[in-house]
Amino acid sequence: MRLRVFTEPQQGASYETLLRVAKAAEDLDFDAFYRSDHYLAMGGDGLPGPTDAWITLAGLARETSRIRLGTLMTAATFRLPGPLAIQVAQVDAMSGGRVELGLGSGWFEQEHTAYGIPFPKEKFSRLEEQLEIITGLWSTPVGEKFGYDGTHYTLRDSPALPKPAQSTVPLLIGGHGKVRTPALAARFADEFNIPFASLEDTRRQFARVRAAAGEAGRPDGDIVMSNALVACVGKDDAETARRAAAIGRDVAELKEHGLAGSPAEVVDKIGRYGQAGSSRIYLQILDLSDLDHLQLISEQVRTQLP
């Protein structure tokens, strides 16, 4: 089981804050540092204001050395597929081949309105075309051209450059959709992520993805399965309660819907997600000033996992 740090900078974080967290995650032997892709806080004032996901990752690519870097999830509504393919390939090269791309359809209409970003009705079909274009651009041999005729996007005589440093940038697709989401994952995903799901919902969704992958001719186990869950761990009840209060959440609710409580409690619950098929957990860390939280999780949770 791999543990990854997942941040929500739209709630209020500068690049310097994210850099401190990413470096701490690397020093503490977490597997990856991920961030969301949002431009508007969901509650609170969001000060000092949003940071861009791929500009952030470009900076971190040069200031870290081992940890993998990615998004849960880049919003397809924010970017055109050609420029996004260039951005991700460039950041991958800047990192020495440590980038992963989580790509989703985009869903938060209010942030689009706040920053003048179109919010189309046909988001899922746009996402599908973006995945086709990005993978097509990256897989086109050097010296050949790439073209695409879609409903939403058309490319002509693209040199399909630059290429990522990795032979394949891992693609993450996720969500709770019962039909179209598993089918899309079966076509494109190296990893499928279900966010903030119960154990039972996790089992059901993983089964749907495996079934869709089998129908697409992919071998069993070809897609990595993962969860994203809020984390609130304390060495004792008082510390857990303090950390829950700092993020405005109730301990009982966090224990039911996330990973909360003592290290032993959290190790046990992660083990149950492992039994459900998950091999990576993205720990949603909401208080980015509390680096002691990361240290506790690394030393007393991460080291206890198989």
Score class of each variant (00 low, 15 high):
residue 87 Q to W: 00
residue 101 L to V: 11
residue 86 I to F: 01
residue 83 P to L: 10
residue 84 L to G: 14
residue 113 T to M: 15
residue 84 L to T: 08
residue 123 K to F: 03
residue 94 M to L: 15
residue 82 G to A: 13
residue 130 Q to I: 01
residue 132 E to F: 10
residue 92 D to P: 10
residue 133 I to L: 04
residue 90 Q to K: 07
residue 93 A to L: 12
residue 133 I to A: 03
residue 123 K to A: 01
residue 98 R to N: 12
residue 90 Q to L: 06
residue 114 A to Q: 10
residue 110 Q to S: 13
residue 85 A to M: 04
residue 84 L to M: 13
residue 81 P to T: 11
residue 116 G to H: 15
residue 117 I to A: 10
residue 102 G to F: 02
residue 127 L to W: 03
residue 97 G to C: 07
residue 101 L to W: 00
residue 81 P to F: 04
residue 122 E to C: 08
residue 78 F to V: 11
residue 104 G to H: 04
residue 113 T to V: 14
residue 129 E to D: 09
residue 90 Q to R: 05
residue 99 V to H: 00
residue 131 L to I: 02
residue 99 V to I: 15
residue 112 H to E: 15
residue 129 E to Q: 08
residue 103 L to C: 05
residue 112 H to Q: 12
residue 79 R to V: 08
residue 117 I to M: 14
residue 81 P to G: 05
residue 121 K to R: 14
residue 121 K to F: 12
residue 112 H to K: 00
residue 110 Q to D: 09
residue 81 P to M: 03
residue 98 R to H: 06
residue 98 R to C: 04
residue 102 G to T: 04
residue 84 L to F: 06
residue 94 M to N: 07
residue 91 V to Q: 00
residue 95 S to N: 08
residue 116 G to L: 11
residue 77 T to F: 00
residue 79 R to H: 06
residue 78 F to M: 09
residue 128 E to A: 15
residue 133 I to E: 04
residue 119 F to D: 10
residue 103 L to W: 07
residue 127 L to C: 09
residue 113 T to R: 15
residue 116 G to E: 09
residue 81 P to K: 05
residue 79 R to Y: 09
residue 130 Q to H: 13
residue 95 S to I: 03
residue 80 L to Q: 13
residue 101 L to Q: 15
residue 126 R to P: 06
residue 111 E to P: 05
residue 79 R to K: 02
residue 101 L to E: 10
residue 102 G to Q: 11
residue 83 P to F: 10
residue 120 P to I: 01
residue 116 G to F: 12
residue 89 A to Q: 01
residue 115 Y to Q: 13
residue 118 P to W: 05
residue 87 Q to P: 00
residue 120 P to M: 06
residue 108 F to Q: 04
residue 86 I to W: 03
residue 116 G to T: 10
residue 122 E to P: 02
residue 125 S to K: 14
residue 122 E to V: 08
residue 115 Y to S: 11
residue 133 I to M: 09
residue 131 L to N: 10
residue 106 G to I: 11
residue 87 Q to F: 02
residue 100 E to L: 04
residue 114 A to L: 12
residue 119 F to C: 06
residue 80 L to M: 09
residue 119 F to Y: 12
residue 95 S to H: 11
residue 95 S to G: 08
residue 94 M to Y: 13
residue 124 F to H: 08
residue 106 G to W: 15
residue 89 A to W: 05
residue 81 P to H: 08
residue 132 E to K: 14
residue 124 F to I: 04
residue 77 T to D: 03
residue 88 V to Q: 00
residue 112 H to L: 06
residue 108 F to P: 08
residue 104 G to R: 01
residue 130 Q to E: 12
residue 105 S to H: 03
residue 130 Q to N: 05
residue 121 K to P: 07
residue 98 R to K: 09
residue 106 G to K: 15
residue 79 R to S: 06
residue 100 E to R: 10
residue 105 S to G: 13
residue 118 P to I: 10
residue 104 G to S: 05
residue 94 M to D: 05
residue 107 W to M: 13
residue 133 I to T: 02
residue 133 I to D: 01
residue 110 Q to K: 14
residue 131 L to D: 05
residue 89 A to N: 03
residue 95 S to T: 12
residue 117 I to F: 08
residue 109 E to V: 07
residue 131 L to P: 06
residue 119 F to L: 05
residue 109 E to K: 11
residue 91 V to R: 01
residue 129 E to I: 13
residue 106 G to H: 15
